[in-house]
Nucleic acid binder design. Sequence first.
RNA 1: GCCGCGGUGGCGGAACUGGUUUACGCACAGCACUCAAAAUGCUGUGGACGCAAGUCCAUGUGGGUUCAAAUCCCACCCGCGGCACCA
Length: 824
Amino acid sequence: MMYNPQKIEQKWQKIWEKEKLVEAVDFSKKSKFYALVEFPYPSGEGLHVGHAFTFTLMDIFARKKRMEGKNVLYPMGWDAFGLPTENYALKTGIHPKVVTQESTDRFKEQMKRLAFDYNWNREVNTTDPNYYKWTQWIFEKLFKHGLAYKKEMDINWCPSCKIGLANEEVVDGRCERCGTKATKKKLSQWLLKITAYADRLADELDLVDFPESVIASQRSWIGRSEGIEISFPLSETERVIPVFTTRPDTLFGTSFFVLAPEHPQLKELIKPEHKKEVEKYIKEAKEKMELERIAETREKTGVFTGSYILNPLSGEKIPIFVADFVVMTYGTGAIMGVPGHDQRDWEFAKKHNLEIREVISGGNIKKEAYPGEGKLVNSGKYNGLFFQEAKEKIYEDLKEKGLARKRIEYSIRDWIFSRQHYWGEPIPMIFCQNCAQKGITFWDTEEGKNFKSLFKISEGLAGWFPVPENQLPVELPEVEKYEPTGTGKSPLAAIKDFVKTKCPFCGSEALRETDTMPNWAGSSWYFLRYCDPKNDHSLADYKKLQYWMPVDIYLGGAEHTTLHLLYSRFWHKFLNDIGVAPGKEPYLKRKTHGLVLGENGHKMSKSRGNVITPEDVKDLGMDALRIYLMFLGPYNGTFPWSTTGIKGVRRFLERFWGWALSQIERKNKESEKEIKILVNRLIKEVGEDIDNFKFNTAVAKLMKFLNEVKGKRISKNDLVNVLKVLAPFAPYITEELWEKLREEFSIHKQSWPEYDSELIKEEKIILIIQINGKVRDKIGVEAGISEKKAKETALSSLKIQKRIKGEKIKKIIFVPEKLINIVL
RNA sequence: GCCGCGGUGGCGGAACUGGUUUACGCACAGCACUCAAAAUGCUGUGGACGCAAGUCCAUGUGGGUUCAAAUCCCACCCGCGGCACCA
């Protein structure tokens, strides 16, 4: 009988649909396992083999866990808010809701064809009002707890998409999506105080099993830096200007002082004779900023203000400059210039002929700044101290004078949460002009007064009220035009019925917020919703969350290590703080998957025309596709697609099919011992490979096994075990052969076979005989051979005798079960 | 510049708790089947020299540790990813 994968696929897909295989059962006594793979954005083009790669990895892993008897939660859903859908709607006039429905239907059908065995009864969709009701609910909680605030600010703006961008969405100064150069625009934006969780987001990475690279990326994104704030007294007034430094030990090396062009105290320090020059510089710096001053040459420009500041310990008079290499967004917007021990300061000093003073010995400061360690010199009473010690001492002395305090700086910024688009969750807030004028905030209302906020409430929120919870969700209204207005307002602003509402506090006319949330919002908590996807009363039942959470293994893309992963950890920690989600961390273990490139080695994209979809290889069969994708290489690698490669896998399945059928016909009673050993080893090794995410070598072992047993007889029992081991990889062919064996439906409800550990013990080993570490002979010997016997065997080898003739044996090294090395 | 990961045949990759380098597959070559081709099967395939048995050399480069290094250490080169006037 010919192997006809398409026929088999159609047959079993129908049966699996009707007769459910395995469900995830809430509160089952079996031990739970939560296997999660990042849910996709259902693009109009459908699923390609890159998606298939990722999903197959987890599908095999989850199937194995089920076979091991675990109660596996293995869900799928749709991260469906987003620009492409909106853009498509813009072009065609079809409602994004309709487009999304079509796309998700298509994805789902493709996933079913690929035999991804998800718990479809737990499907979630971020664009479903019953889902985003809770996304909005979380936002309101963030607001009430002081973690959401509004701020007039310069935001990154994409002139092409006409949308505000988060810092994370600007890559090399360009819009992450369309590549247009980002500009700045002043808009009033909602921000989330992720900075309040910066320490925990960094520290609690110790609690989870994430790849080293992910931890490093997250820590560097958070960018914690511990230092002190030193106040420098101005020479002419009583006032001080603080700086942030991690190197107080270099204080005596300060030969200049720099303020950022935007520094609030700058104006009063400009002396009349420098006014023209300084104001010109500030103006230029501002313009430069708009043209991205980062990308420009890093020449250390700057001008003298005419004013001086005093070294807080030595009293030395220090000139104050303004320079744009100092930025207002980090530290205090002012620095102490220590050219001897900071490269940027060194360059600035060179350019402006300022003194470069050595205060830490060990480098050659004539050539370059020395940022390393050493003893203090030229530092008065601190001379001779090691820099670490000096840090402490100087800090103590400054603190005594009230001129220093410990300070931690982060490079992470608060999360800009407003988007000026239609296809996103409406931010559920109402602005009341009447209350705003009276300075009334949510926390002045009856509800607000009784509300215990976990964090300090930001100012400037007068007149802003969350939509009462019983009115959630704030549904997206129908609109005629999806175009962003380009004025900085979302298309929702044009819908009067939507915008006009009543103030929940005073009842007078009020306006709804018309911005929507970024597409990171819905994905920041979806893993919780899978645990209880249809709950109307809460985002998920706490008991169910306690049962299923945390996610045991989370597979996702490298592009999400600093954004999605950080945002969702932040939300989870917050939800834990307010008692609606258990556990400090949502994900126990994170794995980063690789990428399948087009056949030409470039990233698959419609515009490059190198996209391969499952449909393109349907003749070869989905089992072949699954196995081929696993066989490409390690799960985290990047590989070009190869059509000849997948044909090789198809040949393997073809041979397997033929071999298995002939075994079924023959009805062998017993396998030879040698075959039994091979089967038992296969069970062990493939099982371990799956556990270790080594799917490529698991496939290699299956292929090797077939090569070794081809043409040989195997008992039914052994064949059954081989099928079970192959089943997670190739669900269709194994189900079909299972049926031919007249076994009870379905192979996918079976448990993972056990192996006989006695049987697979090696009886014979190949003893490697080396001379001076080079392999000179290999002899088959019994396992567990003694050192004495091994030596005898080695020395009796003719090849060895020839080589050691006339030489003196210095020593012989024996490694049990492995080798013997004769040193001459 | 800093942080993380990597560099093994013509290609994707195995082997990394130090102990047979190149598993498995692709590609290629020869043979069989065929009028022929495709498909399939069998055999071969790291490099150099050799008719051969065989010998020597090979895991980015250069050193080191060790009886023994793809694996550990040092320096350097290259590639990928992240961060970056961060004070």
